[in-house]
Design a protein around this nucleic acid. Structure first.
Length: 585
RNA sequence: GGGGAUGUAGCUCAACUGGUUAGAGCACCGGCCUGUCACGCCGGAGGUUGCGGGUUCGAGCCCCGUCGUCCUCGCCA
């Protein structure tokens, strides 16, 4: 083998005259018969190597047989390129290598898609992931991912956090997502579950006095996939003892700022904005608002009685909500485009979309006639609307208005270019509800997870009106994506038991499923809490990608297949028998 | 499980209202070429239109089913 002395991204004019060896893949070949150019590529860059006739016929002949993606080694001397023949697009474009020796390590079959173009369909790219991953665009993402892991490790380690590993084979616990199960061979009819997160282990570590824990942890959830969701994903998992919610947020902020500085070139001002969940839902209709633009949803129900607009009057009488927002510059939407927006909000259950153009003379639109002049004026004032804006409103049940308007808000923000898409906005949404009522299951369900500590001042609602209890919970939101979340945990066995009972877990069940936790809580458990950041999503955001698959080296398709390996696959009957597993319809 | 989009040469795409032998660029193969960097020029080969069925004189196109891929609702403590 010709062992490389340099990589393909580092030769410059300073190396001229040196004898060097490069290893890499043929990115492109340009064959002039008597003269052959090869762009040699590795993950560091591209260097042009040239085969000239004065090195002998055999060498030129061998060079002419090179094709895309052959893996080769070349030895030669670094030469300054002929004047005027430099390539400013390459970091190595001032020089080229004049080859004296060539070794082909491995020829390549004709690639199934054009690796340089990168426009092959995803199915094919995933099947040949090893080729797809040769693309510099993707390599960049994984280099970023590596750096992110390094920064996280260093930052937390410097703050006194210890890195732990927790089991992948654990036990299934109720609540939360569907578990991936692993049958036990040693115990017929018993199963391990892959962790949805290392939640309970990290809490136990606090009870063991480890004080500050972190892990770059793989998590598994057997739910349907989405553009930003994979069945296995990676979290930066953190837990701390003797802390309140503010302490967690405060200790994570420098890390977030570091990452932002490193990957986006600018760090947010600290402390980050904290938004109360209730206020957040009222203003933006979601718990993960995109705050790169400041359009806010406002309540309009109070105006209904002063109009002759029956639709909203009936809505208000039914206890529905009437809410709206003002789209700066939205008046330029055509009738057809507005129909499109109406169809869009209908996807979220909205029965209609009220629209009012703001003009010099007042509001116009098919429903403007229902609004007396003073109401129009008040509307304009309420939104600080300007000529050329458009006010949109939706009437309906709270959930519908929230969904319709929050999604409309995002769409308007993008279409009307209300923000610079290359910017980033970071904030905390805090004080989530502890529980919500699940009508189908006829019980309370934990909003975050069952081990969350209520706000002290809300504890009394546990007995009277549990949905009013707010939790010591916080989500990190970046550009409308939830990038992480955490809570202060319940370290009081009495409160924990009360929450389990609200969740419909009998004391016996609780003992059976979480006995170890309850036991640990009764041996001097410290107040503690933590957070987990979604690493895949942060890579996605910082690399400007819109799907999570390109942030994961070997991702799965929307149906959960790994197209490269063919997983999941069938197994031998013998394997199943050993596990006491039978396939049934 | 539901909704939407999609599948044509190795790749990216085209093919009118259902109508001749399904085309183009790139890639591939052969030839020419000593300064290219998306090299160029000449020539060639390459198709079960995802799969199965149906309608029709005739289907890439219409209908039914099925599979894959993408987006989405439900789901995701």
């Amino acid at each position: 083998m010709l062992k490389r002395t340099h990589n393909c991204g580092e030769l410059t004019a300073e190396n001229v005259g040196q004898t060097v060896i490069l290893n890499g893949w043929v990115d492109a070949y340009r064959d002039f018969g008597g003269l052959v150019f090869i762009d040699l590529r590795d993950r560091y860059g591209i260097t042009q190597v040239v085969f000239e006739p004065d090195q002998g016929e055999a060498l030129i002949a061998a060079a002419r047989d090179l094709r895309s993606e052959f893996c080769i080694g070349v030895q030669g001397t670094v030469a300054k390129r002929l004047t005027g023949k430099e390539n400013p697009k390459l970091a190595t474009g001032q020089v080229e290598m004049r080859v004296s020796e060539l070794q082909v390590y491995n020829e390549s079959a004709t690639p199934p898609f054009d690796i340089q173009a990168g426009d092959a369909n995803e199915e094919l790219r995933l099947k040949y992931r090893f080729l797809d991953l040769r693309r510099p665009e993707l390599q960049k993402v994984f280099i970023m991912r590596h750096k992110m892991n390094q920064i996280m490790r260093k930052s937390l380690s410097d703050q006194g956090f210890l890195e732990f590993e927790t089991p992948i084979l654990g036990r299934s616990t109720p609540e939360g997502a569907r578990d991936f199960l692993v049958p036990s061979r040693l115990h017929k009819g018993h199963f391990y579950a892959l962790p949805q997160s290392p939640q309970l282990y990290k809490q136990i570590l606090m009870m063991s006095g480890m004080d500050r824990y972190f892990q770059i942890a793989r998590c598994f959830r057997d739910e349907d996939l989405r553009a930003n969701r994979q069945p296995e994903f990676t979290q930066l998992d953190v837990e701390m003892s003797f802390v309140q919610d503010e302490d967690i947020m405060t200790s994570m902020e420098p890390l977030v700022a570091n990452l932002a500085q490193e990957f986006t070139g600018s760090a947010p001002q600290l402390p980050l904005l904290r938004i109360d969940y209730q206020e957040c839902m009222e203003k933006y209709g979601v718990d993960r608002p995109d705050l790169r633009f400041d359009v806010e949803i406002k309540d309009l129900a109070d105006l209904a009685p002063r109009t002759s607009f029956q639709v909203i009057q009936i809505a208000v009488q039914n206890g529905d909500r009437v809410r709206g927002l003002c789209a700066p510059g939205g008046a330029k939407y055509t009738r057809k485009e507005i129909d499109g927006l109406t169809a869009y909000v209908a996807e979220f259950g909205a029965k209609g979309l009220i629209w009012l153009k703001v003009e010099d003379t007042g509001l116009t639109g098919p429903t403007a006639k229902f609004l007396p002049e003073d109401v129009q004026k008040e509307l304009i004032e309420r939104f600080s609307a300007k000529t050329g804006d458009m006010i949109f409103a939706v009437a309906g049940p709270q959930g519908v208005t929230h969904q319709a308007l929050s999604n409309l808000r995002i769409r308007l923000g993008a279409e009307l270019k209300l923000y610079d898409p290359s910017t980033y906005h970071y904030s905390w949404v805090v004080r989530f509800p502890l529980l919500h009522w699940d009508a189908e299951e006829k019980r309370y369900v934990a909003e975050h997870h069952p081990f969350t500590m209520p706000l002290p001042e809300d504890l009394h609602y546990l007995d009277t009106d549990p949905t009013k209890v707010r939790a010591q919970a916080y989500d990190l939101v970046v550009n409308g994506e939830e990038c992480g979340g955490g809570t202060i945990r319940c370290h009081d066995p009495v409160i924990q038991a009360k929450i389990f009972s609200l969740l419909g877990l009998s004391p016996e069940d609780a003992q059976e499923k979480f006995g170890f936790l309850l036991s640990a809580l009764s041996f001097g458990a410290p107040p503690h809490g933590g957070i987990a950041l979604g690493i895949d999503r942060m890579v996605m955001l910082f690399s400007g990608l819109t799907n999570i698959r390109d942030c994961i080296a070997f991702p799965k398709t929307a149906r959960g297949y790994d197209l490269m390996t063919g997983a999941p696959g069938q197994v031998d009957l013998k394997q199943l028998r050993e596990l006491y597993v039978r396939v049934v319809d």
